[in-house]
Computed example of a mutant assay.
Amino acid sequence: MSQNIQLPQTLPGERRAPSLLTQFLDVFLIELTNWRWSWRSLITLGMISPLLSTTALGTFARDSGSLSLSYVLVGNIVLALLFNNMNNVNGHVFFMREHGTLDYFATLPVRRYILILAILAAFLLLSLPSLLVTIIGGTLILGVHLQISPLLLIVLPLCTLPFSAIGALIGARMRTPETANAFSYILTLVLLALGPVVIPPDHLPPFMIFIGRFSPATYAASALRQVLLGPITNQFLIDIGVMAGLTVIAFWFVNRKLDWSI
């Protein structure tokens, strides 16, 4: 009479790999620990440029009406997202690549995409204080009235993650830190300049509006403008759809291109 014998799932002395949630939480806490001494300066530097830009542009936009002021506010929130996430993630991933940290993580029972998600989530959390100060400070400086929608809780991650993933891709592929930083800053300026991000569409030439349709910053600014200032229109679904799709594409590229030598 035959019997079904259940073989052990692991060999004697072999440990099971931790769950995906455990992997994520462990790496997430490691990433936050990396900034335990410098998080204050990281947050402060992330606020300076958007607030200065808000003050300067707001001086010229006051005579153009409330619409121009709303674009200045939201455009500088996008600037804060770019500085706090794309540029910082770029430098961090490049540092990890050059100093063997990625090889170290490759020896651990951690999936590559979990490492990437944990890095992006850590920088998202670190960017929230700067974003909050930029929103409150910009509102006080410009005199814009907020009409915050609960959908902001969905829009903020969707607007942050693709820029962070683009920053990780830059840090993973550039040869030198100087090249990575220069490319990241140039890309920041280009994304802000293309399309109606900081400047209303009726103040832009038609070709700039057309080119802006291919810029993720345009859709991020549109979504943020609707959930912060209202009203929410049919364009909102297009905006979050584009940002969600860009997040998936950028994350896929980072997962493919990130060095994982061991």
Results as ranks from 00 to 15, higher is better:
residue 185 Y to A: 14
residue 259 D to A: 15
residue 185 Y to G: 13
residue 107 T to Y: 08
residue 151 L to W: 09
residue 152 L to I: 12
residue 195 G to F: 04
residue 215 S to H: 10
residue 176 T to R: 09
residue 129 P to S: 09
residue 177 P to C: 10
residue 213 R to I: 11
residue 24 F to R: 00
residue 71 Y to Q: 01
residue 201 P to I: 07
residue 212 G to C: 08
residue 121 A to E: 01
residue 189 L to A: 15
residue 79 L to Y: 05
residue 167 G to M: 00
residue 164 S to Q: 05
residue 87 N to M: 14
residue 258 L to H: 02
residue 78 V to P: 00
residue 170 I to T: 02
residue 179 T to W: 12
residue 164 S to H: 03
residue 140 L to E: 10
residue 52 L to W: 05
residue 98 E to W: 10
residue 186 I to D: 11
residue 186 I to R: 14
residue 36 R to Y: 11
residue 251 F to G: 03
residue 21 L to G: 12
residue 67 L to V: 10
residue 206 P to H: 10
residue 142 L to A: 02
residue 172 A to D: 02
residue 226 Q to C: 08
residue 134 T to V: 10
residue 40 R to N: 10
residue 169 L to E: 00
residue 59 T to A: 13
residue 248 V to S: 06
residue 46 G to L: 01
residue 176 T to S: 15
residue 150 P to T: 07
residue 197 V to Q: 05
residue 48 I to C: 04
residue 29 L to P: 05
residue 53 S to W: 11
residue 169 L to Q: 02
residue 233 T to A: 08
residue 153 L to T: 09
residue 157 P to H: 03
residue 19 S to P: 06
residue 84 N to V: 03
residue 103 D to R: 14
residue 248 V to K: 04
residue 131 L to V: 09
residue 174 M to T: 11
residue 172 A to P: 03
residue 161 L to E: 00
residue 136 I to H: 06
residue 18 P to G: 02
residue 164 S to N: 04
residue 202 D to W: 13
residue 113 Y to A: 11
residue 243 M to Y: 01
residue 25 L to D: 04
residue 166 I to S: 02
residue 32 L to Y: 07
residue 97 R to E: 07
residue 52 L to R: 08
residue 86 M to L: 11
residue 180 A to W: 02
residue 204 L to G: 05
residue 112 R to L: 05
residue 92 H to K: 12
residue 35 W to H: 15
residue 2 S to K: 11
residue 230 G to A: 14
residue 71 Y to E: 00
residue 76 N to S: 04
residue 65 G to P: 01
residue 104 Y to C: 08
residue 214 F to I: 12
residue 144 V to D: 02
residue 48 I to Q: 04
residue 91 G to R: 10
residue 77 I to A: 01
residue 137 G to P: 07
residue 73 L to R: 00
residue 199 I to A: 04
residue 93 V to L: 10
residue 156 L to E: 00
residue 193 A to L: 14
residue 11 L to F: 15
residue 150 P to I: 08
residue 139 T to W: 04
residue 88 N to P: 04
residue 244 A to F: 07
residue 201 P to N: 10
residue 108 L to G: 03
residue 93 V to H: 00
residue 211 I to S: 07
residue 70 S to H: 09
residue 74 V to L: 02
residue 119 I to F: 07
residue 207 F to L: 14
residue 156 L to S: 01
residue 262 I to P: 13
residue 77 I to E: 00
residue 149 S to G: 02
residue 202 D to L: 12
residue 240 I to L: 03
residue 168 A to H: 01
residue 36 R to Q: 14
residue 112 R to A: 02
residue 166 I to D: 00
residue 255 N to P: 06
residue 65 G to M: 02
residue 32 L to G: 08
residue 164 S to T: 07
residue 37 W to C: 12
residue 184 S to H: 05
residue 191 L to M: 15
residue 140 L to Q: 11
residue 248 V to F: 11
residue 31 E to G: 03
residue 12 P to R: 06
residue 111 R to I: 08
residue 191 L to H: 04
residue 34 N to F: 15
residue 248 V to A: 13
residue 19 S to Q: 09
residue 138 G to L: 01
residue 231 P to K: 12
residue 246 L to S: 03
residue 181 N to G: 12
residue 155 V to W: 00
residue 46 G to R: 00
residue 29 L to R: 15
residue 131 L to R: 03
residue 165 A to M: 06
residue 234 N to G: 15
residue 262 I to E: 15
residue 50 P to F: 01
residue 186 I to G: 15
residue 27 V to A: 06
residue 59 T to V: 13
residue 33 T to I: 12
residue 78 V to A: 02
residue 224 L to F: 07
residue 94 F to R: 02
residue 196 P to K: 03
residue 176 T to D: 09
residue 47 M to V: 07
residue 154 I to G: 08
